[in-house]
């Protein structure tokens, strides 16, 4: 009996949920907004699927239905990746500690 590879992926998925659970509870509440924007950016790793789809077009016909949707998804995901990480960085730069020069 061989184990279906799906089960391995499913195990990774379940373990990652647990990791996420503990990691996110340790996020300080004051950083919940950056948390949302950074999770936004990283979930755009879906771009890997978009790239595969876009590159699958044959050389005679770069734009067939499947690759067109791939290209569109690339644009959407890229907006998120750049926008998400940069806006997170911009927010995090603002969090400053009290100056100790009293």
């Amino acid at each position: 009996m061989e184990i279906d590879p799906f089960i391995f992926r499913f195990s990774i998925f379940i373990l990652a949920i647990f990791v996420g659970y503990y990691v996110v509870w340790s996020v300080t509440p004051s950083l919940h907004t950056p948390l949302m924007s950074v999770t936004n950016a990283i979930s755009s790793v879906i771009i890997v699927g978009a790239i595969i789809a876009a590159l699958a077009g044959s050389s005679e016909n770069i734009f067939e239905i499947s690759s067109i949707f791939g290209f569109l998804a690339i644009v959407l995901a890229a907006v998120n990746i750049f926008g998400g990480f940069l806006v997170t960085q911009r927010m995090l730069q603002m969090y400053k500690k009290k100056k100790k020069n009293k």
Binding site: F13, I14, A16, I17, V24, L35, V45, V48, G49
Partner: peptide
């Protein structure tokens, strides 16, 4: 899961639970 991509599965789980 469709793409059998670990990075995407891990990220999805992280973001979902977050």
């Amino acid at each position: 899961f469709t793409l059998e991509n670990t990075a995407l599965i891990i990220t999805g789980a992280l973001v979902g639970s977050s």
